[in-house]
Design a protein around this nucleic acid. Structure first.
Length: 828
RNA sequence: GGGGCCGUAGCCCAACGGUAGAGGCGGCAGUCUUAGGAACUGUACAGAGCGGGUUCGAAUCCCGUCGGCCCCA
């Protein structure tokens, strides 16, 4: 025992580390967080889910925040009497394991599963209320068997297909990337600048679901952060316009372009093709071929960032051909220019320099004509160099003259449709999801390439296609999948014809694994399918999802897509996987993201060693609103620990002075009022996720109980017990160890996690009197203690009778605003 | 370039259009202590980034502006 013994009794000494050891053991015995699958359990079911972690070493401060917040929700619902499922698993395929394996000459699984063990132990220490019986790992064959099964179902439905084309290639990771994994032209994972490569790859046809992904967001309105919905809308990028067919001189088939501004067709003065589009290659004239090839080679070196930069000077080359404007009949020169991307629309655009800035910049650079067709009242773009993209009246446009933009769009589509050279069209920014990866540590694509039968899915009874045993140098990136060199594994009999065939050697994007994991938690050992459809009916969809905003257009979009496909397959009842979403902020330090190079990292394990789990959890919850970033330099885990010690002493002293079951109605009324008011407020705050404010209320309750013990009715008063018990239950959401020990000291049986939320007595919320503010011209001049039931007339009379108020009035007031019972404002 | 969010004490953060401060950190003072901690008690510090407007009344609503962050281009 420390020297403190003489000041603080042993009984009341707060020793977080000892509590942690004790209660971890007890929770193992009690299993308070098992979710009940029994349909006869009539409690309301709630499914709380944290985005599962990638096992990259031990848990860090970011996990500490995310999981502490998710745990508040899960524990709150449990206290409210719900049947809560709060599972945990690991997103355990992925590149870092492979890189570690190469470095250590080991198998990626060794590193992966060692890290999972470390994280699992840390989670247990961290006291998160997981139902450990539902644990899963996406790299287990029992799991990825079903990822493969889903892939083959997608394949059968035409939702997984292979195509050639230009793809994003990360030169550092030596693999292709999906569009979603390219941020500002860089690899979202490693930051390397992405280049374009021509490759044949597997895709999921997420574009088939573009409309539904957009429309179903109405279900999420108000339940998901608005900015995530906005990001998804932007990403999907639905626009309405028209497809217009342009004849190209010397080409049989017309070329279709998509435009959002068909009304400006009369102002289209030239035609631009993406230099890397097959069309450019096809139509370039012999005289211009050499110049074109040189230009295309130049452009190939550029990243999309460079290509789209508005700073960059416009470049391009004339293709020696002309397109015919379908309405004016004029010949429009066809150019290749890098500001047009091959994957936008059809890889070609009609250029309307007067009303599109990029077209205008290009026209001015190459001295192409500018034809104004919308009169906006602004100066001529040909003179100013500023395109006029806004509303206006159509001019120089034949039948469109005099119409507004909206009218003209409608009219021109009718005209084009009548002639069969155009039609209304919807365009999406969203591209199909490229899922092949040229890496080892992922889910093998269950396809066999047969020279006779083509792409043959591996039959269900042969799943899973397990990874061959490869390690160390064999995994080093070579630009093709390491699996390609595992000859024995690759060579296989075709399931259809029995002839010699080869396995697909790519693995799936790990975002495929995580697109359905939340469904498997209902029964991770289920062997009849990817998930138990009946159990999912009980639990799905996820009621509260918690995770970082960085997945706004990645995981969240993919998981929504998978859910819709599974809905169409009749396997899930719902169309949206996550009812509510909470994005927690980042934990930073000294204004910057923690990083090794800055040397500003904060180690979670060290924080826990120094202050205890509860203090760390309390700190992250109390630091601010859940979605705000926490700067560790601004917060004080030491102060959290002090508060917990105070709260603990209140519970211990109340427990020592009284036994459970006393008649609370005889307790100190003032404290009882305070307790019930606090419970009422904390309830509302928990419901609305204002956990930081809820913690502040618990601090107040602790102080109130302390005052009652020291300078009020004393520790034995039933009101003190009532306050201490309410404190233990509410505190258990954030500081489970302290709450559990306090609850035990109060003579109650474990676990406090299932004690039940305190019941508010409405009679105790009614106040005897309230302070009424009396303002004169909006300035506070007096305060009156009045009954909450006071009438407006009474209150007005009282206010006007006040001497302090009269001093600011001469004569009768012009107006008196009464908001009984809290405020009177007198306008002199 | 377009759109969104946010600017409240030294700091982190609260506050149905109604008393600017709930809570915490850090100050300061005191009780206790040989002292330092710890514990406890008390206390100071902002008129809301800036400028307009609406209103009896604006941190809160509207417009503009500055600064920070994010998304799309």
């Amino acid at each position: 025992m420390s020297e403190r013994a003489d000041i603080q009794s042993d009984e009341q000494h707060y020793d977080p580390q000892a509590l942690q050891a004790k209660w971890q053991r007890r929770w193992e015995e009690l299993q308070p967080f098992r979710a009940d699958d029994d349909p006869a359990d009539t409690r309301e079911r709630r499914y709380v889910l944290d985005m599962f972690p990638y096992p990259s070493g031990d848990l860090h401060m970011g996990h500490a925040e995310a999981f502490a917040i998710g745990d508040v929700v899960a524990r709150y619902w449990l206290q409210r009497g719900h049947n809560v499922m709060h599972p945990i698993g690991w997103d355990s395929f992925g590149l870092p394991a492979e890189n570690a394996a190469i470095k250590r000459n080991a198998h990626p699984a060794e590193w992966t599963y060692a890290n999972i063990d470390t994280q699992a132990n840390s989670f247990k220490r961290y006291g998160i209320s997981f139902d450990w019986s539902r644990r899963l790992h996406t790299s287990d064959p029992e799991y990825y068997r079903w990822t493969q099964w889903l892939f083959t179902r997608f394949f059968e439905r035409g939702l997984a297909y292979r195509k050639g084309g230009l793809v994003n290639w990360c030169p550092a990771d030596q693999t292709v990337l999906a569009n979603e994994q390219v941020k500002d032209g860089r690899c979202e994972r490693c930051g390397a600048e992405v280049v374009r490569r021509e490759l044949t790859q597997w895709y999921f046809k997420i574009t088939d679901y573009a409309d539904r992904l957009l429309d179903d967001m109405t279900q999420l309105e108000g339940e998901w952060p608005e900015r995530v919905l906005t990001m998804q809308r932007n990403w999907i990028g639905r626009s309405e316009g028209a497809d217009v067919d342009f004849a190209i001189e010397g080409r049989d088939e017309p070329v279709t372009v998509y435009t959002t501004r068909p009304d400006t067709l009369y102002g289209a003065t030239f035609f631009v093709v993406a230099p890397d589009a097959p069309l450019a290659e096809e139509i370039v004239s012999e005289e211009q071929r050499e110049a074109f090839e040189a230009y295309r080679a130049e452009v190939a070196k550029l990243s999309d960032i460079d290509r789209l930069s508005t700073e960059k000077e416009k470049t391009g080359v004339f293709l020696g051909r002309h397109a015919i404007n379908p309405v004016t009949g004029e010949r429009m020169p066809v150019w290749a220019a890098d500001y047009v991307l091959s994957d936008y629309g059809h890889g070609a655009i009609m250029a309307v320099p007067a009303h599109d800035q990029r077209d205008l910049d290009f026209a001015r650079a190459f001295d192409l004509p500018v034809q104004v067709v919308v009169h906006t009242g602004l100066a001529d773009p040909g003179e100013t160099g500023v395109a006029t993209a806004g509303e206006g009246t159509l001019v120089n446009s034949g039948p469109l003259d005099g119409l507004s933009k909206a009218e003209a769009i409608k009219k021109i589509i009718e005209v084009l449709a009548g002639r069969g050279t155009g039609r209304a069209a919807v365009n999406f920014r969203l591209r199909d999801w490229l899922l092949s990866r040229q890496r080892f540590w992922g889910c093998p694509i269950p396809i066999i390439h047969c020279p006779d039968c083509g792409e043959v899915p591996v039959p269900d009874d042969q799943l899973p296609v397990t990874l061959p045993d490869m390690r160390g140098e064999a995994l080093a990136p070579k630009g093709v999948s390491p699996l390609a060199s595992a000859d024995d594994w690759v060579t296989v009999a075709c399931p259809k014809c029995g002839g010699s065939a080869r396995r697909d050697t790519d693995t799936m994007d790990t975002f495929v694994d995580s697109s359905w994991y939340f469904l498997r938690y209902v029964d991770p050992s289920y062997e009849e399918g990817p998930f138990d459809v009946e159990k999912l009916r009980l639990w799905g969809p996820v009621d509260q999802y918690v995770g970082g905003v960085e997945h706004a257009v990645l995981h969240l979009l993919y998981a929504r897509f998978f859910t819709k496909v599974l809905h169409d397959m009749g396997m899930v009842d719902f169309t949206e996987p996550f009812r509510r979403l909470l994005n927690q902020g980042q934990v930073i330090n000294q204004g910057k993201a923690m990083s090794k190079s800055l040397g500003n990292g904060v180690d979670l394990g060290q924080q826990i060693d120094a202050y205890g789990v509860d203090a760390v959890r309390l700190t992250v919850v109390f630091a601010g609103p859940p979605e705000d970033d926490i700067d560790w330099a601004d917060v004080s885990p030491a102060a959290s620990q002090k508060f917990l010690a105070r709260a603990f002493r209140v519970m211990a002293e109340a427990g020592a002075a009284s036994a459970p079951g006393a008649d609370v109605s005889t307790g100190d009324l003032e404290l009882r009022r305070f307790t019930h008011r606090t419970v009422d407020e904390v309830t509302k705050l928990a419901e609305s996720h204002r956990f930081n404010v809820a913690v502040a209320r618990l601090m107040e309750l602790t102080s109130a109980a302390r005052r009652a013990i020291d300078a009020g009715p004393g520790a034995a008063d039933p009101a003190v017990r009532e306050a201490a018990e309410a404190l233990a239950v509410m505190l258990s959401l954030v500081a489970p160890y302290t709450a559990e020990e306090g609850w035990e000291r109060l003579g109650r049986s474990a676990s406090v996690a299932r004690a039940g939320w305190p019941v508010v007595d409405p009679a105790l919320l009614v106040q005897e009197s309230v302070t009424c503010v009396v303002q004169v011209a909006g300035k506070v001049r007096d305060r009156l203690e009045v009954s909450p039931e006071i009438s407006e007339a009474e209150l007005e009379a009282l206010a006007l009778a006040s001497d302090k108020v009269r001093a600011f009035l001469d004569g009768d007031p012009r107006k008196v605003i009464v908001r009984a019972p809290k405020l009177v404002n007198i306008v002199p």
